[in-house]
Every structure is written in structure tokens, then in C-alpha cells.
Design a binder for these strands. Structure first.
Lengths: 221, 221
DNA sequence: CGCACGCTTCACACTTTCTTCACGGCTTCC
DNA sequence: GGAAGCCGTGAAGAAAGTGTGAAGCGTGCG
């Protein structure tokens, strides 16, 4: 059965969603704020998340960003606001789709089905490649037990490579991941960051191999 | 590079989209109606499609349904209409997302990135011919399990041949695929690259057979 | 304000890949 | 058999792509 976590502070919205989804055979779990929502997700490993942007205390965008540090579960954003800026921000932060309240149940279910159509290899909050370990939850990287000091961009870049360790990741894939919705060409910057990463990884850790005109590959050893 | 096909009957919309996407390093191809759009997609195998719902003659929904019979390329719907019924119908027919005109370029790019990221984690498109395997997503080729080190041109060339394994591919077809928008005659270079490929394929893999004055054919060994 | 930090841009040396050229072998056709 | 066209491949220069030090730019902070 499909598990869904709903994060919304309004009980009546949660009840409505819950009813609709249960009638479609979803297993529904509710949370009324960001922190408890994250806990639910970490514990239950749902197949999708419905997230309200307008939460008290910790807003939906922050929840999403935190979530995306360790999980790629499909997220459907719910919001009363119709501001393009917020939509874009949420999409850039890793949301999979966006529904504006009030919404029809048909549209909701259709969009939910779309974002779920992709089946994930569920993600551990930790990635390892050889003697390299990335803790996505805490944004920490360590090499053979020693803590690496990485800048945010470097971490994101290494994350992208490590996630597909051993395989080629194309320049386009990297740039879309590390610099989402950036108009200017980042390939110049990319080379520099690769250079920095290589220095920090040293000769004992995994190596970043260039595949000319295609991309990079992280290999153990 | 990322290939995108735009299907829209309004030239100014195509031009705007084309400009925006080209600045983001997409390779853009335009079509002004459904049938020619489908032809483009079939031939170019783009990484994403932007499809207008309000086309003359064959409407966007029909195009999408036809497309989904044989391709899973990510499709982003463009439409002036804001009817929920139509949105839902398009999403259910297999569209990946939906943007309502007029839209901001930032939102467009963000949504395009999202549906492409989905493609990134999707099942890897692979082509096989005998003991040769081409992973198009990662630009990797392997022969009996061992990875082949191919240059971009060699990969593209082998891709073209493998896609039609067993059948003749003419010089013209090859050159148009491997060197698009190249005016000078590449037949000299083609022979050299074929030579290199043959060496890398060795005697155990598929063989590249010359059909004099016509083209080449890849046959399983 | 001045400083530290991270990101980007630039310059330039270096590496890999692409194209061109040369030449010899092969096939076809008369 | 000979001429003409087609093809394969080594070698070398041209072009494209890559690595890295250093400088410039913006931001946040004491």
C-alpha cells in the first residue's frame, strides 16, 4: 500500500485530504507542524509527502529544504498563495509539484499519481563511496574518519557525484543539480570546484575522473 | 547537450522559448504542428518536449496520447487555458507538468529542471546489440561487461549504428546525426572514426560492416 | 569599516579529441 | 589488365576541452 504523510496545520484540511486519500487506498499519516512531519517521514519512509507552505513556526520551505538534505521522497506542495516567486522557490528547493488551494480532488490525485510514477531507490541519510562518507542530515563529510571541511557548493557537488559513484554524471546533470535555475553558464565555475574538491580528497580518497566533453565520475580507491 | 523539442503554432512563442532555452545551453528544435512535432521527436530523441495544447488541426492532447504510445520523454504542457479539466486530462494522459501562459521564464526553467531530474532517476535507457551495451543516460558503453573508453564522437557514432543494429545506416544518416548542422563534408572524418571504433570493439564484439557506396551496418558477432 | 569566506572569472599551460592528409589495398567495370 | 572509385589506417597539426593559481566580487560579521 502507498504511504502518504500530510503536513498541514489546519485540521479540517488534513481531514479532507485524509478522507480523499484513504478512499483511494492510501495509508495516511498526519502531522501538524514541520518538525513532527520530518520525524514522521524519517520513521515511516512514506511514498509521498503533501506539504503546506504556510506552517506556523517552521515554514514549509524550510521543512522542504531540510527534508531534501536526506530524502528524495516525492513532495507535493499545498499552498493558498499564488505567488510565482514562492512556487519557483519551492520547485528549486526540490519540490516535485505544486497545487494551489482551493484545489479539486481530481487534480490533486492526478498530480500525486504523476509524482509517484517515478519509483525511487530510497535514500539513506548517508552515502558512502570507498572511505568517504557523506552525512546528508548533518551536512558533514568525512574521509577515513577525518572530518572534511567543505563549502556548501563543494558538498552539493560531491553529493551529486557520490550518489552515482562509479558512474558518469554529465556536466548538465551536475549543473542542474548544484545550480538549479541558474541562467548563466556555470561550467567554468564547475571546473574550479572540482579542482578544490580533488585537493581536499587527496590521493587516498575516492578520485574524481574526467570524461572529456561528457562529465565526471567518482571512483573508489 | 540537452535536446528539447518545442511544439507550438505561434512563431513568437517559439522564438521566446528558443532564446531562453538556448541561453541555458539547450539544443532547441521547433515544430509548428503535431505531426511534424512527432516526427522531430521520433528522429531526434530529445530529452524533453514543450507542447502547446492549443494547436490547429491535431490538438496537443492528441499529440501527447500518440506520443505516449511509444515514448516516455518528459513532456511539459504549455497552454493559455486555465481549465482544471484539461490540466487533469493532460496529466493523466502522461504529461509530466503543466505551465499556464503567460508564464515566467524562471518558473519554466525550474519546472523543466524538475521533470528532467525525474528523467535522471528514471529507468536507464539502454541499447544492446549482442554483447555490446550502450547506456545513453550515462554515456557509457560496455562490451561483455567491460567498459569501453569512447570519445564523444565515437559514442554518438556507435549509438547511431547500434540503434539500427543489423540494418544499413547510410553515410548521410550517420553524418546528419553525428555532426548536426555541419556544412563541410565529414565523410573523411567518418572513416577515421569508424576505424577507431572497430579497433575498440575488437574481434569479439559486434562488427561494423561497410556497404560500399551506401553506408555501414552493425552486426552482432 | 575592515576582514574572512566562498563563489566566480580570467589567464595560461596542458591534455585529449578531431580533422586532414597521404598512401596503399581492394573492388568494380570496361 | 588497367583505370577509377571506394575504403582503411598511420601520422601530425588543429581544435576543443581541462586543471589550477591568482585576482575580483559580493556577503555577512565583529
Amino acid at each position: 500500500m502507498n504511504k502518504v504523510v500530510i503536513i498541514d496545520d489546519e485540521p479540517q484540511v488534513r481531514r479532507l485530504l485524509s478522507m480523499v486519500l484513504k478512499s483511494r487506498n492510501y495509508e495516511v499519516h498526519e502531522a501538524e507542524d514541520g518538525p513532527s512531519g520530518l520525524q514522521h517521514i524519517a520513521f515511516l519512509r512514506p511514498d509521498a509527502v503533501l506539504l503546506d507552505l504556510g506552517l506556523p513556526a517552521m515554514d514549509g520551505l524550510s521543512v522542504l529544504k531540510r527534508l531534501r538534505e536526506w530524502s528524495e521522497v516525492p513532495v507535493l506542495i499545498l499552498s493558498v498563495r499564488d505567488e510565482e516567486a514562492l512556487k519557483v522557490e519551492a520547485l528549486e528547493a526540490g519540490a516535485d509539484d505544486y497545487v494551489t488551494k482551493p484545489f479539486g480532488t481530481a487534480e490533486l490525485l492526478a498530480r500525486l499519481a504523476v509524482i509517484q510514477r517515478r519509483c525511487f531507490t530510497r535514500q539513506h541519510p548517508e552515502i558512502t563511496a570507498g572511505n568517504l562518507t557523506l552525512n546528508l542530515l548533518h551536512h558533514e563529510a568525512s574521509l577515513a574518519g577525518d572530518r572534511l571541511k567543505l563549502t556548501p557548493t563543494e558538498f552539493s557537488l560531491l553529493h551529486t557525484l557520490a550518489e552515482h559513484a562509479g558512474r558518469i554524471v554529465t556536466f548538465g546533470q551536475i549543473i542542474r543539480r548544484v545550480w538549479p535555475a541558474q541562467l548563466s553558464d556555470q561550467s567554468e565555475a564547475l571546473r574550479v570546484h572540482i579542482s578544490h574538491l580533488r585537493r581536499k580528497l587527496g590521493t587516498t580518497g575516492p578520485q574524481i575522473i574526467n570524461e572529456p566533453a561528457i562529465g565526471y565520475r567518482l571512483i573508489d580507491s
